[in-house]
């Protein structure tokens, strides 16, 4: 028996919004520690990793490990039927071929349940080593979204360059060149408005705008986003999910042919 109840159901709605453009199907791996998802997009350029810890749920029961393969477009359609203040419960029997989503209004006067077929997905899991990154940049998530949106008008790629002075985002194309520089903030009233840079060595990497734009669908999840970079390895773009987990996107860089 698997059952996970989340009073703050809108977190789950937001997680799905942040995945559905990048992935069409994926497996949710459930264990007594929580729920995890790892999947690459169809072209294997990016990878998404989601963690929802058991202690972040208001009720969590998972008697035996199970992997629930889901069509994320269908799951997203179902979660859109939940109101933002609904309590969401996900339920499945052991070795079941379907999953049930229950949406309760806060006053318990409306209860809806939706059943969805599970899929058998044979997905490749990648081992992601713990890495000390050369540069770790934290900035407001909305600012990052705006930068990527603005620079996407200029070309297909964004160059992210981090030095101790700050971080620079650049794009070039037929209409010209765009550069956006962010300095580390000296002092801010609110922590979530800060730009902070922890740098061991300067790093410059080039990434496809298309994917960065899809990652910014997670902006609704958290006030801040963390970018971790090292020379010639995938970028990590991380958004926290409340205090129960995270969505991490990994993006393979573009390198000299």
């Amino acid at each position: 028996m698997f059952e996970a109840r989340l009073v703050q159901g809108n977190l789950l709605k937001k997680v799905l919004e942040s995945l559905k453009d990048l992935l069409t199907e994926a497996s949710w791996d459930c264990a007594d520690t929580g729920i995890q998802l790892q999947a690459m997009d169809n072209s294997h350029v990016s990878l998404v990793s989601v963690q929802l810890r058991a202690d972040g749920f208001d009720k969590f029961r998972c008697d035996r490990q199970l992997s629930m393969g889901m069509n994320l477009t269908s799951m997203s359609k179902i979660l859109r039927c939940a109101a933002n203040d609904d309590i969401i419960t996900i339920k499945a029997q052991d070795q079941a071929d379907n999953v049930t989503f229950v949406f309760e209004s806060p006053n318990q006067e409306k209860v809806a349940d939706y059943e969805m077929k599970l899929m058998n997905l044979d997905q490749e899991h990648l081992g992601i080593p713990e890495t000390d990154y050369a540069a770790v940049i934290k900035l407001p998530a909305a600012e990052f979204q705006r930068i990527i949106k603005d620079l996407s008008q200029f070309g297909e790629s964004v160059v992210i360059s981090c030095t101790k002075e700050g971080v620079k985002f650049s794009a070039a194309g037929d209409i010209g060149v765009g550069n956006i520089k962010l300095a580390q903030t000296a002092s801010v009233d609110k922590e979530e408005e800060a730009v902070t840079i922890e740098m061991q060595e300067p790093v410059t990497l080039t990434f496809a705008c298309r994917y960065l734009n899809m990652f910014t669908k997670a902006t609704c999840l958290a006030p801040q986003v963390t970018l971790s970079m090292s020379p010639e390895v995938p970028l990590v773009v991380e958004y926290k999910i409340g205090d129960m987990g995270h969505v991490r996107y990994y993006l393979a860089p573009k390198i000299e042919d």
């Binding site: 350029v45 899991h125 990648l126 995938p234 573009k254 390198i255 000299e256």
Partner: peptide, 14 residues
């Protein structure tokens, strides 16, 4: 010109 790399180029399957 720069070429897009693949995720499997960096991380191995488990």
């Amino acid at each position: 010109s720069k070429k897009q790399t693949s995720m499997t180029h960096f991380f191995a399957g488990t």
